[in-house]
Design a protein around this nucleic acid. Structure first.
Lengths: 189, 189
DNA sequence: ACCATATGAGACGTGAATGTCTCACGCTGG
DNA sequence: CCAGCGTGAGACATTCACGTCTCATATGGT
């Protein structure tokens, strides 16, 4: 037996690893998560009471990363289009985790969902609304739908990159261009 | 007997019910599926060897409905935009099921996925490519990405309708307008 | 040197879901 | 009327993941 030379597992490292794993395989067991993080299942349970607690922690991580991206994107500066572009670029590293949580949240039928998401939704919706008020964005698509669509496109983009069907370098361009400009060709004017 | 004998359960009805249930709760058990269909678990097992077989059957159903929608949308007629609009309208009833299968397929890591999806992807991609060749669609977004984005938007739209955050009557408009026109306001010309 | 602490390994019990089986019932067709 | 078939109900074994537990060991501080 090799008794590792270690003290104090870094909970954050465990979370990151778990996020990366669950992003690829959302049904991974606690054992797989532990192995992926390089710790034993017992230790994993010592840091996260159970699978629920782990998912909750991942949710908090996802919310934190979203808020960090929202802050970094400075949604109030410049045109709304520029802000959206910055936002997608900043949120890209968390896109996979968001996709996992996005589908995971649909299982919390009756249970109350973390209030953090509401705040995030509101901030993104506010961005789209700002674009509408400034005449930059069309007004027949509600901010709520644009927000939801952004989530969907982020998930699709992350999935495409992960499955190897798309290049990571195209991630931001693909999403922003489709979200803002759509598939139709613009008249040069 | 040639004719289905008596209280023969209608497998198609069972599938539809299962699709409706799993769309809402992707982790529903065989027991829940059976109860939802109004049959016993034993009978459910008699028609579908196991959960795997059930999911496979649902996959076939989803593929069939997609192909039916593709046929009904007459993708070769009129402008590509019109075809996309018809496609989204035709595929709307199956959007929930597609969303379920979309996330379910990501679990089939090593396993081969049904070849039917490839055919569907190709037909949709061909539509977008047609739009590009005719100068209708922009060429900096690949047909593959536009196809994937369509799936993502369908899933987002279906989820929004299901959660009550959006009206079913807006489904087609929301998706088509965003996919084709994007969020940016067009110059009146 | 000693002791507290954190970890790894693994055993153990529990619960849920699955898949298989049997048996009794009711309907249909002959 | 009777035989056949599909069904419902339920028992049963199995698998799997989870959560808890114990114990040996290595590390770090005192």
């Amino acid at each position: 037996m090799v008794y590792g030379c270690l003290m104090a597992v870094d909970p954050d490292h465990v979370l990151r690893t778990a996020a990366a794993l669950l992003t690829r395989k959302s049904t991974a067991t606690m054992d797989e998560v532990a192995k992926a993080a390089g710790i034993s299942r017992a230790t994993l349970h010592r840091h996260f009471a159970g699978r629920d607690a782990l998912v909750r922690a991942l949710e908090s991580l996802g919310i934190a990363e979203c808020e960090a991206a929202l802050d970094a994107a400075r949604l109030d500066e410049g045109t709304a289009s520029e802000a959206v572009r910055r936002l997608v670029g900043a949120i890209e590293p968390a896109a996979g985790l968001l996709g996992f949580l996005y589908t995971e949240n649909q299982l919390f039928e009756g249970e109350e969902q973390n209030a953090g998401w509401t705040l995030i939704d509101d901030r993104i919706s506010a961005l789209f609304r700002r674009g509408q008020l400034s005449g930059e964005f069309r007004i027949d698509l509600t901010p709520a739908w644009l927000t939801e669509a952004l989530y969907g496109l982020l998930a699709s983009g992350a999935w495409m990159v992960q499955s190897g069907k798309g290049a990571p370098k195209d991630f931001q361009h693909m999403i922003v261009e489709l979200l803002l400009g759509g598939a139709l060709r613009r008249e040069e004017s």
